[in-house]
């Protein structure tokens, strides 16, 4: 295991950011720390980098106890949400910074910077100032700068959070490819479950200073440990006493299936290839159902129709909690 975090607690005044957190992050993989804002995931990342000190607990990086090590000595690459560029230095100088500090000779630095700029596709921008780059380009520069010193682990704190949706999508695909090319152990923080599922090998779900679940993306989606994980990783609705995903509900015009519940189609929305329905059941609940356009067309569904709904076989469900009754 590359990064070993054991029993880490961190308080800011009365606020408990991390509450006795223990987790192992595997070597060579891309791990996402996923959770809502203020849940403690950035704090955990900053503790691994040494930018924040844990009140109690231990952090081990590649077998070395780093708990009391300064950020300078940890040899981690850190990428910030708002790029943290050195404004007065050219792109090449930014990337070279860590190497120059280590007093590498000039030819070596130049060769390494060239190599990295090529890797992040910024070769032709080497002599520009960061202010002349777009947000996406700045973040790629920041990534090259962090990789320049050949860190043992690469930590990214909401790296695409400040970018617009299209660039964000491009960059996350690019990060995945980059990681396959340069397989350094990478941990990134995100609150976007789609980003985590698309990019990460493994996801650590953090909420309220605690770890809710650790697993591969499909494990978390298909077998969520609890209501929170289920709700955070995708849409959820409630049918009877269980909570499940809207696309895991079968819809029929007759009560043929065992355990089916009758209801009326209250609303019907077509979005691309899928059709979203809201079905009002007799106990007064509104249940969300997602089905394909083809299926909805074959049933000739429309608002006001009486339907019977059933959890489909193999649907992942969790028992409903009282506080989360609204579907």
């Amino acid at each position: 295991m590359s990064i070993e975090i054991s029993n880490v607690t961190k308080r800011f005044g009365d606020f408990v950011a991390l509450d006795d957190v223990s987790v192992s992050l595997p070597t060579g993989q891309l791990t996402a720390l996923l959770g809502p804002s203020g849940g403690g995931k950035s704090t955990l990342l900053r503790i691994v980098a040494g930018l924040e000190k844990a009140d109690t607990g231990r952090v081990t990086i590649e077998g070395v106890d780093a708990t009391r090590m300064s950020p300078q000595k940890r040899n981690v690459g850190f990428v910030f949400q708002h790029y943290a560029v050195f404004k007065h230095m050219s792109v090449a100088k930014n990337v070279a910074f860590g190497l120059e500090i280590r007093r590498k000779n000039k030819d070596e630095v130049r060769a390494r910077v060239d190599e990295l700029l090529k890797l992040v596709h910024l070769t032709q921008f080497a002599d520009r100032l960061p202010s002349q780059l777009s947000g996406g380009q700045r973040q790629r520069m920041a990534l090259a700068r962090a990789l320049a010193v050949q860190p043992k682990v690469l930590l990214l704190d909401e790296p695409f959070g400040a970018l617009d949706a299209k660039v964000r999508k491009e960059l996350r695909e690019w990060l995945r490819r980059l990681h396959d090319e340069v397989p350094v152990t990478t941990v990134f923080v995100t609150h976007d479950q789609e980003e985590a599922m698309e990019v990460a090998d493994e996801i650590v779900v953090i909420n309220d200073g605690r770890i809710e679940q650790v697993g591969r993306p499909d494990q978390l989606y298909d077998r969520p440990a609890n209501d929170f994980v289920m709700g955070f990783l995708g849409d959820v609705t409630q049918l009877g006493e269980v909570r499940l995903r809207p696309h895991d509900i079968e819809i029929a015009l007759t009560p043929d299936l065992a355990g089916s519940v009758p209801g009326d189609v209250l609303r019907l929305t077509r979005i691309g290839f899928e059709v979203r329905l809201v079905v009002g059941t007799e106990d007064g609940r509104e249940v969300s159902v997602v089905t394909t356009r083809a299926h909805a067309r074959s049933l000739e569904l429309d608002a006001g129709d009486r339907v019977w709904i059933t959890p489909s076989s193999g649907a992942s469900t969790v028992p409903a909690m009282k506080s989360l009754l609204a579907g």
Partner: peptide, 17 residues
């Protein structure tokens, strides 16, 4: 921004640098 100094620190720069 504090993160600019933190970035430099994680790249190995000491306080004086």
């Amino acid at each position: 921004e504090a993160d600019v100094e933190e970035a430099a620190a994680s790249l190995g720069a000491g306080r004086l640098t």
